[in-house]
Nucleic acid binder design. Structure first.
Lengths: 226, 226
DNA sequence: ACACGTCTTGACGCGATCCATACGCCCGGT
DNA sequence: ACCGGGCGTATGGATCGCGTCAAGACGTGT
């Protein structure tokens, strides 16, 4: 499994990073300062590092320098908007990329992905096959009996969350929270609408779903026969 | 796969070289000094060597001399601006070409390519054929129904990124980042403008593209029928 | 200085997609 | 038999993203 180390002094950010990365199938370790970051690296070399520049003990750039002295692990730097000089300095020191706070999670994830890919490590690919339907979540390609099926971004988002749990139940509030963000936890009607659309595109008998199963009052799951 | 050895004492430069060469489809090994460079060559003969003249242990010219004593592998020499005598000496010793630091990556890559080509080794060539369109990415040549088509540098850059992934999805932010660098990740209008230009030049019906496919809200991909 | 090609930036129309609401059905509880 | 909660389905207006056009900035070679 791909192993990512996240370094930031703000526990809230570490938490968000950790949750989102884990949700994407990464193995995650966190560190709150430069010292423990280097220690983690020493124990187990990550496949990528997310490094905040503003750290309590060592400067972020210093950590990067130390890292670069013995490894080429891809590093994506986080920096506050104003400290643009630090950012440049970090890139000079061999950072692979940077993202300015406040950052968009999807953007950061894309950066991490491509940094890992450039480094040549294996990329996590998620493919689900059920009957004559094939869902390649990372590539965003869906086929049914060999024919390409087009899903909208929101539809993919739902499919992605369900696919990642491989048959296990996903609660309504969780699904809503993941796709629409906080504040939509009660809008279960959205789920009904979108699940209907997804079924219409992928199920052979949309009114009798065999893949996208409803657990009434609880949530949904994506079952893959076989 | 074409195998290139890069030798430099500066880890940052090695890193940059490594990333860029790998991105072009080469297999890359690096060495920080003359001794380990010779060791790598001993283990597996490269198809080309990029050799910095300023090395901590052996002199770069000495390494070249040792190399030439048993192989004709193409060598492209890196040298700092001032050491012009070293450069001449290196050429006398059988270097195939030289590039002065600070060097332009594209230029260096072109030198390496042509050194390999002269040596007659198999070149890492990337050619995509779709319908009556032929894209030779390494050579920067595009033809449509046999006629030469001119693409601008930026257009090539986009085509190159898409071609390297052969039909797989490239996300918007990733494409922007690859072509325009960090900080342009939201400028999706650039992509719209350039993709339109590329299609106008290459697609038979630009408003109904068959090669350069849009995944709305996600990214683009270059599909090659057949 | 000029001309040319290229890159940036803004504006606009259109179609796809999303949001929000409404309605009918099934089913279990009373 | 009635009722209500939860679900699937249909629908229309608002919004978003894309393709397209065009004008200005920029840079390079003549």
């Amino acid at each position: 499994m791909t192993f990512v180390l996240a370094v930031d002094d703000d526990p809230a950010i570490l938490r968000t990073l950790s949750i989102n990365l884990r949700a994407r199938g990464y193995d995650v370790e966190t560190a709150g300062d430069g010292r423990s970051a280097l220690q983690v690296v020493d124990e187990r070399m990550p496949d990528a590092v997310i490094l905040d520049l503003g750290l309590p003990d060592l400067d972020g750039v210093a950590v990067l320098k130390r890292l670069r002295s013995f490894t080429q692990v891809p590093v994506v730097v986080l920096s506050a908007r104003h400290e643009s000089d630090d950012k440049v300095e970090a890139l000079d020191e061999g950072a692979d990329d940077y993202v300015t706070k406040p950052f968009d999670m999807e953007e950061l994830l894309a950066r991490v992905r491509s940094a890992i890919r450039r480094a040549g490590a294996a990329e996590a690919s998620l493919v689900v096959v059920a009957g004559d339907v094939r869902l390649d979540v990372t590539e965003r390609r869906a086929t049914r009996a060999g024919d390409e099926v087009r899903l909208t971004p929101t539809e993919w988002h739902i499919v992605e969350v369900l696919a990642r749990r491989q048959g296990r139940l996903v609660r309504q509030a969780e699904l809503l929270h993941e796709v629409w963000g906080p504040g939509y936890d009660r809008e279960t009607n959205y789920l009904r609408v979108y699940l209907a659309q997804i079924r219409r595109k992928l199920e052979s008998d949309p009114s009798r779903p065999t893949m996208f199963i409803t657990d009434p009052g609880i949530g949904y799951r994506l079952v893959t026969p076989g």
